[in-house]
């Protein structure tokens, strides 16, 4: 215990305190946190897929996947999701060029395409409901509705977020906060494309086999 001789840092030549003030990278700290949230969200989908894997054959005498999926229609939705993501990608490249107009414009395109996707999805499920193919009919239908619409709900949430971000870009420009949020939204929106690949393959393609 050599506590008597309390040397200072200068005499010892060892840097004990970081007076140089190296702050943390705010943007990447924020996007990393959001990325962690995305992974947690992916776990939600993984669980829903696990439930679907168990229940897909439990039709209780009601309609099975072959009876209700329309792969070509779903492919239309795929085109919309992917192109919305592409438009959002252009919005991010516009951000790289610091173009407010570009960011807002491309985001508007992404928003419209996303809304188109939601429209198609609502049309599909309204049609099912009309025929009495509702979640309360069987376990398969319960998990079908919940899995697909969970993705849809994410899409809807993303659209609201885009509206907020378009306003914020117009109002505050590219502040640290706004850029961090744009990058998080980018992750969120791209993630919907990843999830759609899984939904499309497992539900619409495997369902049609």
């Amino acid at each position: 215990m050599s506590t008597q001789n309390t040397r200072t840092q200068s005499s010892a030549g060892v840097a004990l305190w970081d007076e140089g003030h190296h702050g943390h990278d705010v943007i990447s700290t924020r996007t990393f946190g959001f990325w962690l949230y995305m992974l947690s969200d992916a776990m939600i989908f993984a669980t829903l897929f696990a439930a679907y894997a168990v229940l897909a054959s439990h039709t209780a005498g009601g309609p099975a996947a072959q009876d209700i999926v329309h792969p070509w229609y779903a492919f239309g939705e795929t085109v919309l999701v992917f192109s919305s993501v592409l438009a959002f990608g252009f919005s991010v490249t516009a951000l790289k060029a610091a173009s407010r107009g570009g960011v807002i414009g491309w985001m508007a395109v992404a928003l419209l395409l996303g809304a188109g996707f939601l429209g198609m999805e609502i049309h599909e499920f309204a049609g099912l409901a009309m025929q009495g193919i509702v979640p309360a009919r069987s376990a398969f239908l319960s998990s079908y509705w919940v899995l697909v619409l969970t993705h849809g709900l994410h899409m809807a949430f993303g659209l609201i977020w885009m509206l907020v971000m378009m306003y914020q870009v117009a109002r505050y420009g590219f502040s640290t906060d706004v850029v961090a949020r744009l990058l998080s939204l980018k992750y969120f929106w791209f993630f919907q494309a990843v999830m759609w690949v899984c939904v499309f393959t497992v539900i619409y393609l495997h369902g049609a086999i």
Binding site: L55, H58, P135, A136, R137, A139, W145, V146
Partner: peptide, 18 residues
């Protein structure tokens, strides 16, 4: 909660739930 509120069949013994 979907089972309890909307009458789905995820965990009911009947209608295919597990």
């Amino acid at each position: 909660s979907f089972d309890r509120y909307l009458g789905t069949h995820f965990f009911t013994p009947g209608l295919g739930g597990d």
